[in-house]
Each structure stands twice: as structure tokens, then as C-alpha cells.
Amino acid sequence: MIGIYFSGTGNSRYCVEKFLQKCDIIANSYSIENSELLQNIHNHEDIIFGYPVQYSNVPKILKDFIIKHSTLWNGKRIFIIATMALFSGDGSGMLSRTLKKYGATTIGGLHVRMPDSIGDEKILKHSLEYNRKLVIKAEKKITEAAKKLKYGVPPKEGLGFLSHIVGLFGQRLYFINKTNVYTDKLKINAEECVVCGKCIDLCPMKNLVIKNDMIVSNGQCTMCYRCVNNCTKQAITLLGKKVVEQSNIEKYM
């Protein structure tokens, strides 16, 4: 068994790693950006797959990864962990249906609420205490789910028809274009930016580059919020106009 994740601020990575620990097995987990991942997918049948839900959908970068490596999924047994701030309906179901096209079988699904990573929207923010309690609840839920998987009765959250309807009409139908394409809405405040290059190193899309002594976006943002949440000058925004809170999983441990 191995773990695979795509993670912006660490929520999905944390959940996958905790799940593997609670299964009491020795297993490694890999980001989809890891150069060793493809060989490890080839060598393992059972996979724990984690990702952050975006508008009840799969992030564009993850969809592209799965399609690009479509031959790898045939015969794999997948348990999906979908992390979210509010709800998704069928977060795990979206990934499950995509993987099924390429021969994978989904054996279970889990929806885990985690601290919100959208650092430039005040309406989504909660207190530090609230988010720390959220992480504690998440670990308890992960522990229970891991036990059920070991006993052969894994949870199947987000995989049914009703969940599909909730996800479709709850968010996805109205925001479908948000995740079908990469966005060009990322903004860098040139007056605040000191061109340290940290965001360039963190970006999974290699979307940020230096031009004319300024950091600019190439319009290929997958909305993972790494740059927004790690910019030392809080000079980067995406959905909002200013950074309200920078959120990484380590903050809530």
C-alpha cells in the first residue's frame, strides 16, 4: 500500500499520512509532484489517495495528472480521502468516477473537514482554537475509518448517487469553469513583493516567474493557495483583495 496526495497547505498530506499510520502498516506517501511516484504506483495495488476539494470537484492539476498517466490505474484498489472546509457532496465520488474510466476500483471514501486554506476570504475564516479542534476531530474520524478498512467495511462517503446530486447542485454546476481550466486570476502586489522567489519554488504548476525584476503569473494557477499562504509579505491574492490569514497545517498542530 502507498499514499498519494495533492496538497496545497498540507491538509490532504496530513490526512493521508495519518490514515496510513492508523492502519498500522509501514507505507510511504508521495505527492503527485514527487519524481519517484510513478514507479511506486506501478509497484503497488492498494492506494490511499488524498486531495482538497475545489467547488465540489477535483483540482485541475490532479485531473491532468490522472489522465496523463491513465495506464497506471488499471487494477488498482483506491481508498479516497477528500479534504474540505465546508462540504462537497461527492468529493470522493468525483475522483472515483475519473479513476474508474481507467480501470481502478474504489473501495471506500472519506470526507474530512479541515482548516480552510483560502487565505484571502474573510467569510471563511475561523479562530485558531476552532481550527485546532477541527484537526483533532479529523484525526478521530481518520482513526475510525482506518479501523473499518482493516476490518473490511470501509466507509463510502461521497460515493453514492445521492451524494452525486448534492455535489452537482450544491456547488459544481454553478462553478464548473473554476476547475475545468487553470485560472489567470492570481494577483501579485508589486509594491509589496520583494521578489524573494519563495512562491516560485513552491508553485506546483511552475506558474510564477521573474520578468523585469517582478514576479508575474503565466495564467496557469491551479488554486492550491501555497503561494498566498506562504508569501512573507502577503503580497499575493487570488479570490479576495487582501490576505486575511495565512493557513498551513503546521499552524494547527
Rank of each mutant, 00 (worst) to 15 (best):
K18G: 01
L20K: 08
L20R: 04
Q21K: 13
N28C: 05
N28W: 02
N28S: 09
S31D: 08
S31T: 10
I32D: 11
I32H: 08
N34R: 04
E36T: 06
Q39A: 10
Q39D: 11
H42I: 06
H44S: 12
E45F: 01
I47V: 09
I48S: 03
G50T: 05
P52T: 01
V53F: 03
V53Y: 03
Q54L: 13
Q54W: 12
Y55S: 13
Y55C: 12
N57L: 03
N57F: 04
N57D: 13
K60W: 02
K60R: 12
I61L: 14
L62E: 04
D64S: 14
I67H: 01
I67Q: 00
K68P: 02
S70D: 08
F79L: 11
I80K: 02
I81N: 10
A82W: 06
T83A: 04
T83F: 02
M84D: 01
A85P: 06
L86K: 01
L86I: 10
G91P: 04
S92T: 14
M94R: 12
R97T: 06
R97F: 00
T98P: 00
T98C: 02
K100N: 12
K101G: 00
T106R: 09
L110N: 01
R113W: 05
M114G: 10
S117E: 06
G119S: 13
K122P: 14
H126W: 07
E129N: 13
E129D: 11
Y130L: 00
L134K: 15
V135Y: 00
